[in-house]
């Protein structure tokens, strides 16, 4: 029973993590790659954490050892830390690549570029 739940979580984790890898090779520019890399790998790692939690719950009820409860708490803290830092890191990388002059490929509209050129025009 516990094995089936863990297999389900692990299958979702592997699917999205591998999709994150594929998106890095398939998308044309750094912004779309960030979409794939951030969302898919965060979701996949979250499900890896869920799989570990399911495993720990099953082991706790099987053995009654308290260290599995500690493992659950620490895994939850790690997943929460990852959820916050990944989103913020993606935001920082996107802003940095736009400021370093990489324009989005195949873009239909770029308001940030318009604002920056306006500002450049005003000072020049």
């Amino acid at each position: 029973m516990a094995v089936l739940v863990v297999i389900l979580f692990v299958a979702i984790c592997l699917f999205f993590n591998l999709l994150g890898v594929v998106s890095l090779f398939r998308f044309p520019d750094v912004y779309t790659r960030l979409h794939g890399a951030t969302k898919c790998t965060t979701f996949g790692t979250l499900f890896a954490a869920f799989a570990v939690i399911a495993h720990s719950v099953a082991r706790y009820f099987a053995t009654g050892e308290v260290r599995f409860l500690v493992l659950i708490i620490h895994t939850l803290v790690a997943a929460g830390a990852l959820l916050v830092t990944n989103a913020t890191g993606a935001h920082a990388l996107a802003r940095a690549s736009h400021r370093s002059g990489i324009m989005p490929a195949q873009a239909v509209v770029d308001r940030l570029e318009e604002r920056e050129s306006e500002k450049g025009g005003a000072t020049a």
Partner: peptide, 9 residues
């Protein structure tokens, strides 16, 4: 930037 994204992943 692509390298940084790969490193982050």
């Amino acid at each position: 930037a692509d390298r940084a994204v790969a490193l982050d992943t």
